[in-house]
């Protein structure tokens, strides 16, 4: 187990390092950062000075190591646009993204797992079909469009929830649904497939034969085993959700990290952009790592390894 964890940890660290290098490189793809910092009407000398002061004239690798070192201590530099520390801005906005992401995942799990279980319990019935339809339809609705339609119906025509912002908790309802439904199809399908497989396994048949109740078999034995892959999928999806929050946050004007990312991208605020790409990647890496560990812990075969 320990060896397994260490191996996964090493892999995660290596991925993190590579990702950080890629996000660092983004800055240099955009051209000379010194000009952006020096600002309008800066003379050639001023730009030279800035380039030297910020150390842009040093070898790329040196700069990367320095940036990395600072990033490890939470220092992502200063936003070109807001002139405020990037880490502070992100720290202010991350809670919104995490709340919406967490709620969205909760919504997805609450919807997908019962649906998957029911679909597997009654395969090829109307229930199964309905669940499949929900999954197929869910996959095909573009989330930005879905969001707009929900705004038109629920906040404009019915006036039930605010169209934007999170001044009251009701502001979270629509974003949660839009973000959550996107993860629903995959989780539902996996739950259903896992349940089908488990239900046909010998020990379940034995359990049924022993006269254990349907509900006990279903939830105590079958679901427990079928849920293992769902956990890792959920973790992966949660990582995707944070990265995908940019669309949802833009539509609902939630001032979270995703919205900040979009705004930073469109105004060329590179330090912020870099930091956000890195942070979203880290979320994904951490979640998948945790999922691997959880999997190992839940799955006796892996635990032995």
């Amino acid at each position: 187990m320990f060896k397994y964890i260490m191996m996964k940890l090493g892999m995660a660290a290596l991925v993190a390092l590579t990702v950080s290098f890629i996000s660092f490189l983004l800055l240099f793809m955009a051209g000379d950062p010194a000009i952006s910092i020096a600002g309008e009407s800066a003379t050639h000398e001023v730009i030279e000075k800035v380039r030297h002061e910020y150390g842009f004239d040093r070898p790329l690798l040196v700069q990367y190591v320095e940036w990395c070192g600072k990033a490890l201590t939470g220092d992502f530099g200063v936003s070109y646009y807001f002139k405020a520390p990037v880490s502070q801005m992100i720290a202010e906005r991350l809670p919104v993204t995490m709340t919406v992401g967490g709620l969205g995942m909760g919504f997805a799990l609450l919807l997908a797992i019962p649906m998957g279980v029911l679909a597997a319990a009654f395969p090829n019935t109307i229930i199964d079909r309905t669940a499949l339809t929900v999954a197929v339809v869910g996959q095909a609705i573009p989330s930005f469009w879905f969001g707009l339609i929900l705004i038109v119906i629920f906040s404009v025509q019915l006036g039930l929830v605010p169209a934007s912002g999170t001044r009251t908790w009701t502001g979270y309802i629509l974003p949660t649904i839009v973000l959550g439904y996107y993860a629903t199809p995959a989780i539902m399908r996996l739950t259903r497939a896992g349940m089908l497989e488990v239900l046909s396994a010998d020990y379940i048949r034995t359990a049924r034969a022993k006269g254990l109740g349907w509900r006990v078999v279903m939830f105590k034995h079958a679901l427990r085993n079928a849920i293992i892959p769902v956990v890792s999928l959920a973790a992966v999806q949660l990582g995707f959700m944070f990265g995908g929050s940019v669309v949802v946050e833009t539509i609902f004007a939630l001032h979270g990290a995703g919205f900040l990312a979009w705004e930073s991208i469109s105004r060329n605020d590179l330090p912020t952009m870099q930091a956000l790409i890195l942070i979203f990647s880290m979320f994904y890496i951490v979640f998948t790592f945790l999922a691997d560990i959880l999997n190992a812990w839940l799955d006796p075969r892996l635990r032995a390894a």
Binding site: I151, S155, V156, G159, P162, A163, S164, G165, F252, A253, H255
Partner: peptide, 18 residues
């Protein structure tokens, strides 16, 4: 004062009295 970048959302908020 809040930042609501999208005009539509601003309109929707006017409708709701926000």
């Amino acid at each position: 004062i809040r930042t609501v970048p999208d005009t539509n959302t601003q309109m929707a908020e006017l409708f709701n009295g926000d």
